[in-house]
Design a protein around this nucleic acid. Structure first.
Lengths: 337, 337
DNA sequence: CTGATTTATGAAATCGATTTCACATTTGGG
DNA sequence: CCCAAATGTGAAATCGATTTCATAAATCAG
C-alpha cells in the first residue's frame, strides 16, 4: 500500500542506494540524478518508513521526557524548554507522565532499553539514583532536571535547595518571625529533605531552637497542604509563619487559613516554592522562590543532545542554577518584636 | 553490544522463532521450552528491539497527541485523559507541542506518514479540515478533540460552543446587561467563530442590536485580552459586561480593569471559558464555562484505540459533550435596569 | 497397530531502509 | 596523452525482530 524506496528508485531510474543518498546527503550525488530522484519522491509522495530507518541506523532521533505530572506548570515550563531545543535539533520528544508513580517511571525507563528512545530526560526522578547510575554505566544516555546525580555521563541541572531555603527563612526572620512551620513534601524526595536541611541550617545560624512539631508533611499538593495545616491548627501550636516546600501546598495553607479565620500576612506569613502562576493571582499574592524553569529544560536538552550527537561527554555536565526569592504580599508584614 | 533474540535462542537451545512465540503468546509452546526461554531472557536481560519489532509488525503501538500548548491546563487535562487510557491499553503517546504554529502542526502530522505513530489525536486543530480529511481518506487513523470534523473515520468530541455561548449571554442578560463585549481568539479558530455565533444568536433572541465595535480579538492569551480591553477602554465605548472566549483572555481583562480603575463585577461583569484553575483563585473569582476535559480526552482515546485495534470503525464516532456554566463572583452583580 | 490429525518447533523469508564494497567513469597532473 | 586520483552509482549485506511454511513427534480414532 505504502510507497517504498524501491518504488522511488524505479521511477527515478536509479538504485535504492542512490535515493537514500539523496535523502540523507550522505555522499555526493550528481545534480541530474538528484533532480530525477526528487521529482520521483514528489510525484509518489514518498515518506521514508521510520521503523526501517531506525532499525538500520540504530537511532530514533527521539528523547523521552519522564515527568511526574504534566499538569503542573513547573514541569510544563521545563518541558517547553526541552521541546524547543529538541525541535531545533530535529529530535522528537516522547512525554511520559508517571502520575507520580514510581513503577510507571521504571516502566518508562524501559523505552531506553528497547531503543524506542535514544536518550531520556528525567524530571525530579522518583527511582533511586543507583538505578539511574546503572543505566548510565550500561551506556544509556540520560539527563536529570531537579537533582544532582553523581555519574560523569549524566548531565544534571538543579537549583540549590539548601541555599534558597536558607534565604526564605532568613527573609522570614528579618520580618520578625521565629516560630516558622516547614511544610514538607513526601519524605524521600530530594526536594523535601534538602529544603528541610536549609530550613534547619538557617534556624541554627539564628540560634533559633528547632521545634520538630512544626514540621509537617503535605505531599506536595494542595490537599496535602490543607490537611497538614489543619493538623497544626488543631494542635494549637504557636507559630507565625509557614514555609511550604512548594506553592501547591501553600494554596492549601490559604484554604486552611480561610477556614480557621487566620489572616495572611498579618497573623500568618506564607512563602512557597516554584513561583506557580497562581501565586501572582491569588489574594494576597504569594511570596515564592522562582526557578528558571524554561532555561533549565533548555540547557539540559542542549547538553544531552550534544552528548548524543558527538558521543562524547561534555566538559561541564553539572549545572547549579540560581533561583530568586520573590517577595510578595503574603510575607510582607513586619512583626514588631 | 546489545543482546538480541538469537542470543536468547542460543542460550535457551531453541530457535529465534520460538523465543518470539514465547514473548508474544502467538502460538502454543510447551511448558518446558517456555521455561528455558524465560530463564534465558532473564539471565541475559533481553529487551526486544522496538525498531525491528515495529518494522516487521507494521505497528508502533504509539499515538501522537498534537497540542497547541501543553502549558495550559485545559490541554494538559485532556492529555491526562488520553494518557491514562493509552497506558492501560499498552499504547505509548508522543506529545507534540506546536506552540500554536500551524506549520509545526503540519510537520507533526508527518509522523503518521512515516509510520512513527499508528494514529494521531489532534487537540483543536489549526490546519484546515480538508487536510485532515485527506489523511483519513488515505487510511491514516486520527481523532479530534474540540471540533467536529466531517469524516466517518474520524472520531471527534467537542462541546457545543454555540449552545454554551448562548447560555453565557443569557446569564449576563439576566443580570441586567445589554452592552456585552465579546473577546474572540484568532479568527480562524472554530472556538472563536462558533462562540461568536452563539453570542450573536443570543443577542438576536433578546432583540438586542449587535454592535460590531464591541467585538475584539485577544488571541486566546492573557496579553491579547489585556490589549484588546485597553483598546476598548480607550475608545470610550459603553458596555457593562465582557464575555471572553477563554479564561486566559479574561485574566487580561482583570489586568486592564485594575489599570483603568474598573471594579469587577459591579462596574463590569466578566465571564470566561475553560474553567482554568486560576479562575477559582483570582479575586473576584471568575465565572467560567467548564468542559469535562479529562473525560473528553479519555473517551476519544478509547474510541481511537478501539478503531485501531479492531480495524473497523465505531458505531458512534461523534460525541457532543455538555458543558456547565459556573457562576462565580465576577458576574454575580445584579444591575438595576 | 495403523493412518489421520494435532502439536511443537525450526529454517528461511520478510519488513524497508542504510551502508559497504566494488567498479565504471571523469578529472587532473605532469 | 597516459596513469593516478576522485567521483558517482549499483549490488548485496545488514539491522533484529515476526511469520510462513514445512516437518518431526505426539496423540488419537477405530
Amino acid at each position: 500500500m505504502d510507497v517504498k524506496i524501491v518504488d522511488v528508485a524505479m521511477i527515478a531510474g536509479v538504485s535504492p542506494a542512490t535515493v537514500s543518498r539523496v535523502l540523507n546527503h550522505t555522499s555526493k550525488v550528481s545534480a541530474r540524478t538528484r533532480d530525477k530522484v526528487m521529482r520521483a519522491i514528489e510525484e509518489l509522495g514518498y515518506h521514508p518508513n521510520a521503523a526501517a530507518k531506525n532499525l538500520r541506523s540504530q537511532r530514533t532521533m527521539t528523547i523521552g521526557v519522564i515527568v511526574p505530572d504534566i499538569n503542573n506548570s513547573y514541569f510544563a515550563e521545563i518541558i517547553k524548554g526541552i521541546e524547543n531545543i529538541a525541535y531545533a535539533q530535529h529530535y522528537k520528544i516522547i512525554i511520559c507522565d508517571t502520575q507520580n508513580q514510581k513503577e510507571r517511571e521504571a516502566e518508562y525507563l524501559n523505552l531506553l532499553l528497547d531503543r524506542t528512545i535514544d536518550g531520556a530526560i528525567i524530571l525530579t526522578p522518583l527511582v533511586e539514583d543507583q538505578e539511574l547510575i546503572e543505566l548510565a554505566d550500561k551506556g544509556y544516555r540520560l539527563g536529570v532536571v531537579g537533582k544532582y546525580v553523581k555519574h560523569d555521563q549524566v548531565p544534571c541541572i538543579y537549583t540549590d535547595n539548601v541555599k534558597f531555603s536558607q534565604e526564605v527563612v532568613q527573609h522570614l526572620v528579618d520580618q520578625g518571625h521565629r516560630d516558622i512551620v516547614f511544610l514538607s513534601g513526601y519524605a524521600d524526595a530530594v526536594d523535601s529533605y534538602e529544603r528541610l536541611e536549609g530550613y534547619l541550617k538557617a534556624l541554627r545560624s539564628h540560634h533559633i531552637p528547632f521545634r520538630p512539631e512544626l514540621v509537617e508533611n503535605g505531599n506536595f499538593n494542595e490537599q496535602g497542604g490543607y490537611e497538614a495545616m489543619k493538623r497544626l491548627f488543631e494542635k494549637r501550636l504557636s507559630f507565625t509563619a509557614v514555609y511550604a516546600a512548594n506553592d501547591e501546598m501553600a494554596l492549601g495553607v490559604y484554604q486552611a487559613c480561610a477556614e480557621y479565620g487566620m489572616r495572611i500576612p498579618d497573623q500568618l506569613a506564607v512563602v512557597g516554592v516554584d513561583n506557580n502562576r497562581i501565586s501572582r493571582y491569588i489574594q494576597p499574592t504569594l511570596s515564592s522562590v522562582d526557578q528558571p524553569k524554561y532555561t533549565m529544560g533548555a540547557i539540559l536538552a542542549e547538553k544531552l543532545i550534544d552528548m548524543m550527537n558527538h558521543n562524547e561527554f561534555a566538559h561541564q555536565r553539572v549545572f547549579r542554577i540560581d533561583s530568586t526569592l520573590l517577595i510578595r504580599e503574603s510575607s510582607a508584614y513586619q512583626r514588631k518584636s
